[in-house]
Design a protein around this nucleic acid. Structure first.
Lengths: 231, 231
DNA sequence: CACTTATGGATTGTCGACATTCCACAGAAC
DNA sequence: GTTCTGTGGAATGTCGACAATCCATAAGTG
């Protein structure tokens, strides 16, 4: 617990709000997940059960189960009898995350074209993004972007795909939180989406796939140094 | 515990062997997983913590954690304050499992063609399958088939893909265990694989993808009634 | 000085007991 | 007969304590 890399009390609120009917493990998991995805808990940070239990005023049992939930999410790893820590992010893993995401979204596009899902929601998210880009509102743009892709996946009407994508997107959240945001060109990101919807509307399979593919790959461009530093 | 659908003592060995250095939760999880994947624990069976703890002579804590591991594997679902049960298998879920697997394997084929991985292991597994088909040895054929696909995924050199595929394959194990095996044509399954390796060797992307795609889809043919009965 | 061997502290692993919640069933009221 | 209410049992949820394990550090030995 004297480790510099251990949980910093200031970054972690000290009490669990008395919400009813929600298991403590879920509340703890949600809080820890938020901390990890926001970048407050950096990769490599060790999660000590007793320390977390003291901080949050709960016993170790819910803490253990919460950490296990995060392990399932792929955000935490356990080393037996040694400790649990926020999973380090390697450049390779970042690349793999985005390439898998690309495959997922291409699959979604294929299915949407097959089952003729309505596209108006996607259009709406495009408009929101454009507006956010014009207002230079990074947070709003990111939110709209996620809404767009979430809708895309949902329209594919494939529960397993959606679950897998959601899990993958957790890591993307984390990566984005650790990235340097200054390099992002808001207008460019926003302008990437409408053509995708256009291609979907036109039923142009090849073009839709090529566009979503390229878009995902563009997002994957990252600064490995940034990631490495976050260890 | 008077439920007809609860854990049957005869199907579940009563004691955990005293293996050293392996956490009880892992041993319990492995045993339960095996039971589920083999079909001994059928979908819908409720998993009562206290009953399992008594049967295996351990406390409830490792049982809870083991069940949570299986939940992460997607084999078990929890209903708060009500119980945990082996996740029911719907026809839709079976279909989704195979369609996602198809996407994974296509991705693997693409990557193998890109990075020029050696194909001799795949050839070897093909030979094993052919031999098994000739000997009418179902178990050996299934094992070789899994080895083939596992190798295919591993050659793609993508950790996240392999992890996702492995998780998905758990469900395929379960499905196969619940299926009626008589309908399978051993020779046909075995003969499907060599052409895939041929296409890979020839560097024919389109043909390789088409073949692996069709192969996966063939495997997806199942009898919904069989699945439904298993509830 | 190099190398092995204890030993103590920190952390996870496991346990049994108690608290909380839900569900099914019985009984009362209409 | 139907509906509401409450009560008991069964299951999960949470807790605090103890056991097992590992690692770092220090003591001992050649």
């Amino acid at each position: 617990m004297n480790n510099v890399n251990s949980v910093a009390p200031d970054d972690m609120p000290h009490d669990i709000a008395p919400i009813e009917n929600v298991p403590l493990r879920v509340q703890v998991a949600d809080r820890l997940r938020t901390a990890i995805l926001s970048g407050r808990l950096k990769p490599g940070t060790s999660l000590v059960e007793t320390a977390l239990a003291d901080q949050m005023n709960v016993s170790r049992a819910p803490i253990r189960e919460a950490i296990q939930i995060l392990e399932n999410d792929g955000l935490v790893e356990t080393i037996a009898y040694k400790g649990k820590r926020v999973k380090p992010l390697t450049a390779r893993e970042v690349g793999e995350t985005y390439s898998l995401r690309e495959v997922f979204e291409v699959m979604a596009v294929r299915r949407i074209l097959d089952n003729g899902a309505p596209l108006d929601q996607l259009r709406k998210h495009c408009d929101t993004m454009t507006a956010a880009a014009r207002a230079d509102d990074f947070e709003a743009l990111i939110a709209a972007d996620e809404a767009f892709h979430h809708t895309l996946i949902t329209l594919a009407d494939h529960d397993l795909l959606r679950a897998s994508w959601k899990n993958l997107y957790l890591r993307i959240h984390q990566i984005m939180a650790l990235r340097n945001r200054d390099e992002s060109n808001l207008t460019e990101i926003a302008s990437n989406h409408p053509p995708i919807v256009d291609a979907l509307e036109a039923g142009d399979t090849e073009r839709a796939i090529a566009l979503i593919s390229e878009h995902t790959r563009t997002l994957a461009t990252f600064d490995p140094v940034t990631i490495a530093q976050s260890l």
